[in-house]
Amino acid sequence: MTRPIDVGGLSGEKALRLYRGLVRIRRFEDRVYQLFLRGELPGTLHQYQGQEAVAVGTCDALRPDDWITSTHRPHGHALAKGVSMRGAMAELYGKATGCCGGKGGSMHLGDPDAGMVPAIAIVAGGNSVVTGLGLAFKLRSTGQVATCFFGEGATNEGAFHEGLNFAAVQKLPIVFVCENNMYGASTPFHLTSLVTDVADRAAAYGVPAQVVDGMDVVAVRAAVETARARAAAGDGPTLIEAKTYRFAGHSRGDARGYRSRDEEKEWKERDPIDRFGLALTTAGTADEAALAALVAEVTSELDDAVEFARNSPDPDAAEALTDAYATPITIGALR
């Protein structure tokens, strides 16, 4: 699990793209946390630091017109799939310019223009809905593939099983990406399942599965690339289990009393950004200066996104009553 990241065969361009993707999410999440503590953001937060390699590796292997479903922890998925940083940040601020007009917020980030269904904050909620995305692509022969992100906690929900089984029997073009970060809120997975690897559960449905190092963006990308090709070829879904770790608590105000600092330290030694940066500089794929320049670019992008969000107007209060229906209820309707 802690073997060095193999960057052989990775072009400089692709390497920097992946590195940039990781840094964008990390910096975004760190900044968001500060903004939240300063009281600038409403609601709650579920942060993604530590798991960046899963979102970035997965989405980099997808086509731009592929779609994803996400979870209550969607910031990383959104940025990786192409939701604009401005749109995402403004949504966290609850502004009119947010990617969901302020109606989604942190837990429902998404944007159809980027191929992302508003994140589904019900655990395993996406696991049944994603089958419909895959079914539509199959019925229309579009060549698109749907990807469902979910946590290991979702695999004890009925929707995980029903969705996976239906996707399998219908040979739907879907990649199921489980981010096993070991804890469902405070509860460790081993107290909720006698199966250690989520991947083993796929066998029950005749679905091939693979465990990957979720702290290794190259490994995640390779696994998803293979699974995506299989899905697009009409051979059905694959389940990828990415072993990962969330560096932050479950949500805001989680003091993480249920896990040891030693365990956290051990996982932070596998930091997906540090490890990847080291591998790139060691292999000579990129030099320190290039990586530093890239971080500076991301910082500017982030500053811009925060300024954009701060300066954006609140939604008009009247907007609260729009968008519940596509065809407004008018004919002598209940008011």
């Binding site: 809905v129 419909g132 692509f137 089984n165 029997v169």
Partner: peptide, 28 residues
């Protein structure tokens, strides 16, 4: 039978598939 789709006894899959397909512009 591509358009008359038999499913497992799996209401969450039926409804989930319908929601997802509808999101993609189908009329399930």
């Amino acid at each position: 039978r591509d358009r008359i789709i038999d499913t497992p006894i799996s209401e969450k899959a039926i409804a989930g598939a319908a929601v997802g397909a509808a999101l993609m512009g189908m009329r399930p």
